[in-house]
């Protein structure tokens, strides 16, 4: 596998204060590698430096120290931008253009032909599930979620090899969230590398191969999601079942003393102390004819890791 993004010791100081300038370190020696075809999650609390990293990579701000390369090209090589996409943090676009005009404009900047631009604009607006009635409405009349969709569309207009998404799900309703999440997942099949930042752990968990956790400008953790989960310790698992009485379940779970049974209105909830016990529990439940409603970890390991990092 080749490397899609390589960040080396990237550091950024902001100058704040009007009369007396002070330097504030927003990003401190970030070193990170993202492989091609990966979906990489970039986690961090508010103000951790996620957007700063994105902006540094896009050359919107310049680093105090360190370097980075995207697709093997130094970030100062503008021609490389033909192969990448970027969704800024609070997307806001020319409000005097319609969604379609804006996307055609973006495609034109990449040098596609007129007909190609038109086709791309339409295909992308459909892809991000923007209501067809809004395609020819001026962007000033768009809601936040609609703008977010347009933003995602413009980031994909050139079939990029790598996309940088700064909080792609913010401002979306639950349905929109799922659509965008599915869309990002589908980028995997096009072998598009995705580098996205978010503080919504659920999205990261569902989508990412690997993730990094940033804390006050420093890299706190990086690795495969399984490994990150592992670092938070073993997980208790929760099974929700229906279609069997408590007595039946209790009898079936006899061989598993560690399993805790709680009755719920529709059935029962069974908690086992670690993932390893789930197989046995499933087998036992199958024997007494219960129906499985869901299996999931109790709490969230990533969240624990994330929270632990704040202190």
């Amino acid at each position: 596998m080749t490397v899609a993004l390589e960040i080396e010791n990237l550091t950024k100081d902001y100058e704040v204060g009007f009369a007396r300038k002070r330097r504030v370190r927003a990003l401190d020696g970030l070193t990170l590698t993202v492989e091609r075809g990966e979906i990489f999650g970039f986690l961090g609390a508010n103000g951790a430096g996620k957007s700063t990293t994105m902006k540094l990579l896009m050359r919107l701000i310049y680093p105090t120290a360190g370097r980075a390369s995207i697709l093997g090209c130094d970030i100062n090589d503008i021609a490389m931008h033909a192969r990448i996409g970027y969704l800024p943090e609070h997307p806001y676009f020319y409000d005097y253009l319609t969604a379609r005009e804006f996307l055609e404009y973006c495609a034109e900047l990449f040098g596609y032909t007129r007909t190609d631009c038109r086709q791309r604009a339409a295909a992308l607006l459909a892809l991000v599930h923007l209501d067809d009635k809004s395609w020819d409405k001026q962007l000033r009349k768009f809601s936040k979620g609609m703008l977010q969709r347009v933003g995602l569309a413009q980031a994909l207009v050139n079939d990029p090899e790598i996309v940088f998404l700064d909080e792609p799900m913010s401002g979306l309703d639950p349905v929109g969230r799922r659509e965008i999440r599915d869309l990002i997942a589908s980028l995997r099949h096009k072998e598009t590398t995705v580098f996205f930042c978010s503080h919504i752990l659920a999205d990261i968990e569902v989508l990412c191969d690997r993730a990094a956790i940033l804390q006050k400008g420093r890299l706190a953790h990086a690795g495969r999601l399984e490994d990150l989960r592992g670092r938070a310790g073993t997980r208790a698992m929760e099974l929700v079942v229906a279609g069997a009485t408590a007595e039946q379940l209790r009898a079936a779970l006899q061989p598993l003393p560690a399993a805790q049974l709680t009755q719920t209105p529709g059935g029962a909830r069974i908690e086992v102390p670690s993932e390893r016990d789930v197989d046995a529990a499933l087998a036992a439940l199958r024997d007494c004819g219960a129906r499985l409603v869901s299996v999931q970890p109790v709490g969230n390991p990533l969240e624990d890791l994330f929270v632990a990092n704040q202190n």
Partner: peptide, 21 residues
């Protein structure tokens, strides 16, 4: 979608993928 660890429907995913392609 805020529900942690909820399971994404594979079938849906595949459909979206095809249309995207």
């Amino acid at each position: 979608c805020d529900m942690p660890n909820s399971i994404v429907i594979a079938e849906r995913l595949n459909r979206v993928t095809d249309t995207h392609r």
